[in-house]
């Protein structure tokens, strides 16, 4: 299950027993770290939170949020996750 919270041009996405593998989330955030401040924290690799904040304050975090999940989708398809 996923839960997201937008606040002050940042977003926190809570992953709790979600369909997204932890390794792929790390891979996407590794790509995002050039343009965003990112963090993963929480209990373990199935229950965790992802923090995303654009380094450029004029950039819209909702776009980063959408791109994050699209990138994740692409990696899942490439990894042939069923």
């Amino acid at each position: 299950m996923l839960h997201r919270t937008f606040k002050d041009n940042t977003v926190v996405v809570t992953f709790k027993d979600s369909v997204y593998p932890f390794e792929l989330v790390v891979e996407v955030l590794n790509e995002f770290k050039e343009s965003c401040w990112v963090a993963i924290y929480g209990e373990d690799q199935t229950n965790f939170k992802v923090y995303i904040e654009p380094k450029d304050s004029s950039a819209n975090v909702e776009i980063a949020y959408g791109e994050f999940f699209n990138y994740l989708l692409g990696l899942m398809r490439a990894a042939d996750i069923k």
Binding site: V26, L29, N30, A39
Partner: peptide, 16 residues
């Protein structure tokens, strides 16, 4: 502190 978080992601991905 934020850069430290980014580096955690960087090295986690390296290990993966």
């Amino acid at each position: 502190a934020k850069e430290f978080n980014n580096q955690l992601i960087n090295y986690a991905f390296y290990e993966i």
